[in-house]
Amino acid sequence: MATDAALRRLLRLHRTEIAVAVDSAFPLLHALADHDVVPEDKFQETLHLKEKEGCPQAFHALLSWLLTQDSTAILDFWRVLFKDYNLERYGRLQPILDSFPKDVDLSQPRKGRKPPAVPKALVPPPRLPTKRKASEEARAAAPAALTPRGTASPGSQLKAKPPKKPESSAEQQRLPLGNGIQTMSASVQRAVAMSSGDVPGARGAVEGILIQQVFESGGSKKCIQVGGEFYTPSKFEDSGSGKNKARSSSGPKPLVRAKGAQGAAPGGGEARLGQQGSVPAPLALPSDPQLHQKNEDECAVCRDGGELICCDGCPRAFHLACLSPPLREIPSGTWRCSSCLQATVQEVQPRAEEPRPQEPPVETPLPPGLRSAGEEVRGPPGEPLAGMDTTLVYKHLPAPPSAAPLPGLDSSALHPLLCVGPEGQQNLAPGARCGVCGDGTDVLRCTHCAAAFHWRCHFPAGTSRPGTGLRCRSCSGDVTPAPVEGVLAPSPARLAPGPAKDDTASHEPALH
């Protein structure tokens, strides 16, 4: 009773807030009518008042009428009001819900409408889902798969039609296919003929059939049928067999079959498995989609049935006599038709004709302190090069084509190399640097090759510096006499390219 009084008091307290929050009759008014909170006449009256005075006034009048009803109607109103779709449509209802007392429970059932309790003993237990329907569909599909699609060729003596089998029958139906081979029951999904010589313990000319048996419980189990008994694959494991010639990621696949039913060829011909030897223990289905393919039931050349050999690369099948050149017997292992072999060759040939990528240039590290003349020119003028003790990398590039010797140069053309002071002394051009340390401070000019250098860098042994005729380390061993002091540049003949010694390969005349 306390809860009923509290709900009535809360409705009177929030009546105006609810009326202002509800700006549309749908969905709240319609939901109240659906849950029998508002009768039909009051529903029509509220809609009429909404058209006349507006939605807030109409709902305020409806809530005032609701306060005169019993506690069950008020409880049902609060339940409908706080439904998710009403809270989404009328956003101003959320503060009312947040301020609702926590001790007021809106989930209690309506009085007088409590459903009768059902004894637990009368409640049926839930049924577990079964796979009976899938099993029945598999039974119905198996006879259809064994139905012949056409008439065999005159040369083929193997013609068999499976008798119709009602689904209610649980007995196995067997077809006489000759040579002791028996087909599987209607619940078998796949059958492959297997030679009895590969099964340990088999006697006589009995041949087993590799099947997948579907049981009534819905589970499946792969086994071997020899005669009327089934054997699990673990009985046929043979770890010492060295003649297993397995197909790549293979499961067994029928390579020879008669049109209309699988079996042995007439005249004692023995149908073979995809792999010879003992049956392997793992009978998992292969991951290669080509091995799941269903080959055609007629020859791809003459479009006739009979004894066919199936290609492992495509769905086509052929007569042995229709092949070019014809085959006398079934080859062992994987067999592919000429079209598949030709496609494989065409895929391999473009790969062989692809040009080989060019090898990157060989990189040879230079000892610290040495650099090529090109690196000396590329440096920024007026700045010493940083990191001189790091190992430089010199790339061996292809030799350029031989060019004509340089033409003779006048001494005026070499004027930018040297600057003559007032006393006739050779001065260095701006930006000249030593080729060893890279520093341009207090550098000297070689009178023979006009290269800038430090005496301490080229002659670290402490050799005394002569007063005139300074030469760098590369030119100090040259027998050519030094030019007379005061000459602007060496003779043009000295600039012609010539053979250089091994220790002077990195010091070429550089223009500054």
Score class of each variant (00 low, 15 high):
Asp4Ile: 02
Arg8Pro: 01
Arg9Thr: 03
Arg9Leu: 03
Arg9Phe: 01
Arg12Phe: 00
Leu13Asn: 01
Leu13Gln: 03
Arg15Ala: 01
Thr16Met: 03
Glu17Ile: 00
Ile18Arg: 04
Val20His: 00
Ala21Pro: 02
Phe26Pro: 01
Phe26Thr: 04
Pro27Ser: 04
Leu29Gly: 01
Ala31Leu: 05
Ala33Glu: 08
Ala33Thr: 04
Ala33Asp: 00
Ala33Ser: 02
Asp34Ile: 00
Asp36Phe: 00
Asp36Val: 00
Val38Met: 04
Val38Asn: 00
Pro39Leu: 01
Phe43Cys: 02
Leu47Trp: 00
His48Leu: 04
Lys50Ile: 06
Lys52Trp: 00
Cys55Phe: 08
Pro56Cys: 01
Pro56Asn: 02
Ala58Asp: 02
Phe59Asp: 02
His60Ile: 03
Ser64Tyr: 04
Leu66Arg: 01
Leu67Pro: 00
Gln69Cys: 02
Gln69Tyr: 04
Thr72Val: 13
Thr72Asn: 12
Thr72Trp: 02
Ile74Val: 04
Ile74Gln: 02
Leu75Cys: 06
Leu75Ser: 08
Leu75Ile: 12
Asp76Ser: 04
Phe77Asn: 00
Arg79Ile: 03
Arg79Gln: 02
Leu81Phe: 03
Leu81Ala: 01
Asp84Ser: 11
Tyr85Asn: 00
Arg89His: 10
Tyr90Leu: 02
Tyr90Gln: 00
Gly91Phe: 02
Asp98Gly: 00
Asp98Arg: 05
Asp98Lys: 00
Ser99Cys: 11
Phe100Leu: 02
Lys111Asp: 01
Arg113Asn: 15
Lys114Pro: 02
Lys114His: 03
Pro115His: 10
Ala117Pro: 09
Val118Lys: 02
Val118Ser: 08
Pro119Met: 05
Lys120Asp: 06
Leu122Val: 08
Leu122Trp: 08
Val123Ser: 07
Pro125Ala: 13
Leu128Tyr: 14
Thr130Phe: 15
Lys131Glu: 02
Lys131Val: 02
Ala134Val: 14
Glu137Phe: 14
Glu137Pro: 12
Ala138Cys: 15
Arg139His: 06
Arg139Cys: 04
Ala141Gln: 13
Ala142Cys: 10
Ala142Val: 13
Pro143Trp: 12
Pro143Tyr: 14
Ala144Trp: 15
Ala144His: 02
Ala145Gly: 14
Leu146Glu: 08
Thr147His: 13
Pro148His: 09
Arg149Leu: 13
Thr151Ala: 14
Thr151Gln: 13
Pro154Trp: 12
Gln157Val: 07
Gln157His: 14
Lys159Trp: 14
Ala160Asn: 03
Pro163Tyr: 15
Lys164Asp: 00
Pro166Ser: 09
Glu167Pro: 04
Ser168His: 13
Ala170Phe: 15
Glu171Pro: 13
Leu175Cys: 07
Asn179Tyr: 12
Gly180Asn: 13
Gln182Cys: 14
Gln182Phe: 00
Ser185Val: 03
Ser185Ile: 03
Ala186Glu: 06
Ala186Ser: 09
Ser187Leu: 02
Ser187Val: 04
Val188Arg: 05
Ala191His: 13
Ala191Ile: 01
Val192His: 07
Met194Pro: 05
Ser196Glu: 11
Ser196Ala: 05
Gly201Asp: 04
Gly204Phe: 01
Ala205Gly: 07
Ala205Asp: 07
Val206Gly: 05
Ile209Ser: 03
Leu210Arg: 04
Gln213Ala: 04
Gln213Pro: 05
Gln213His: 12
Val214Ser: 04
Ser217Pro: 05
Gly218Lys: 08
Ser220Thr: 08
Val226Lys: 02
Phe230Gln: 06
Tyr231Val: 07
Tyr231His: 06
Tyr231Ala: 06
Thr232Asp: 13
Ser234Pro: 13
Lys235Tyr: 10
Phe236Asn: 15
Glu237Thr: 09
Ser241Met: 11
Gly242Trp: 09
Lys243Trp: 14
Lys243Leu: 15
Ala246Asp: 08
Arg247Ala: 06
Ser249Met: 13
Pro252Ala: 10
Val256Cys: 07
Val256Gly: 11
Val256Asp: 06
Lys259Asn: 10
Gly260Tyr: 12
Gln262Ala: 13
Gly263Glu: 14
Ala264Gly: 13
Pro266Cys: 11
Pro266Leu: 09
Pro266Trp: 10
Gly267Pro: 08
Leu273Trp: 14
